[in-house]
Amino acid sequence: MKELVVENLSKVYFDPRLGERVTALDGVSLRITPGEFVAVAGPSGCGKTTLLNLIAGFLEPTSGRILLDGREIDGPGPDRGVVFQSYALFPWKTVLENVAFGPRMRGLPRAECEARARRWLELVGLGHVANRYPRELSGGMQQRVGVVRALANEPEILLMDEPFAAVDAQTRMTLQEELARIFEERRPTIFFITHDVNEAVFLADRVLVLSKGRLREEIPVPIPRPRRWAALVENDSFKALVGRVLQAVRTA
């Protein structure tokens, strides 16, 4: 099985607005085992998106390394699927073509790519919009497509960058439950970035608190699955864990 290992990762960049060098990440180490759901919580500017961009291969680290299955990563690749806050669906492609994109890039026959895309769309109840264009869908539906597009490519790990931050609160809870359900059924490995403490505790097996570029605390979430909001909002251990993470975020 493929394990993600981050070793002593740092990222320093020059900020032209401030006119000085900024340390976005400062010696971060972590390890994600297969089938694990890890969330990173922290205020904006804490370096969490930089961490995800480094793991995705969109940025190069200043020092330290990132290993997937023992091999150092080199640029973006299909072994690490990414779900973006802005959805990043191709506006000139239909929903089906968007989801079939990854398999097609791997050279699978078109018919097989489309069959696979259709299967995944059915799974999240989006079969009926397969031939629509992204702009015709609501934000929540677009992000469902975004998640399915990444999953249909069967990555080793799914990297999610505040994926539900741009949708309304009601839709966000639905999407969180859907992601929990997909995770419970298929056990993909997920690395999830959020500033929403409730979301982090609801979804993750483990919450890492990041602040000013350093990992401050690691809080395991031993709440049994399946997890649903109706059962958890009044759950004492859930509330206690949220309180603990919140305190860690605020004091860090």
Binding site: A56, G57, F58, G75, A88, F90, F101, M105, R106
Partner: peptide, 8 residues
């Protein structure tokens, strides 16, 4: 980035 991480 999305295209690259999907293997393009």
């Amino acid at each position: 980035r999305a295209a690259a991480s999907l293997g393009a």
